[in-house]
Amino acid sequence: MGDPSLIIPTEYIGIKDSLSYGEIPVQILDLQVRKLRTKEVASAKVLWRNQFVEEATWEAEEDMKKKYPHLFKFREVPN
C-alpha cells in the first residue's frame, strides 16, 4: 500500500510526453579544426551534464557558440 500524500504530480517535475529532457552543456573540453579537401570544419568537444568525460561529444563550434556563448567567454583562442 502506498501513501497518497507522497505522490507528486508530474506537472511540478516538468516531464515531457516523450519522457525526454534537454541536456545542458557544462564545459568545452577541447577545440579543433579539421581540414577537408575544400573547407575547414571547427568542432568543440562538449561535456554534457549527467555524463562522464569519456562520453563527451564533438559538436559544431559555430552552433555551440550561438546556443551557449557563455561556455566560450573565458576560453583562450587555440593556435
Rank of each mutant, 00 (worst) to 15 (best):
M1R: 14
M1P: 15
G2R: 15
D3I: 14
D3F: 14
P4W: 10
L6R: 15
L6E: 09
I7S: 11
I7M: 15
I8S: 14
P9R: 09
T10A: 06
Y12T: 14
Y12V: 12
I15L: 13
K16W: 10
S18R: 12
L19K: 12
G22F: 04
G22W: 01
G22D: 01
E23S: 00
E23A: 00
V26H: 05
V26S: 03
Q27A: 10
Q27C: 09
L29K: 05
D30P: 11
D30K: 11
L31Y: 10
V33D: 06
R34T: 02
K35F: 05
K35V: 02
K35Q: 12
T38K: 11
T38A: 13
K39Q: 08
E40R: 00
E40T: 00
A42W: 02
A44R: 07
K45G: 04
V46H: 02
V46G: 01
V46Q: 04
L47W: 04
W48K: 04
W48L: 01
R49G: 05
R49H: 13
N50L: 08
F52E: 04
V53G: 03
W58C: 07
W58R: 05
E59C: 05
A60C: 03
E61R: 02
E62H: 07
D63F: 10
K65P: 02
K65T: 06
K66E: 11
Y68P: 02
P69F: 01
L71E: 00
L71R: 00
F72T: 01
F74T: 11
F74P: 11
R75H: 07
R75E: 09
E76P: 10
V77A: 10
N79S: 14
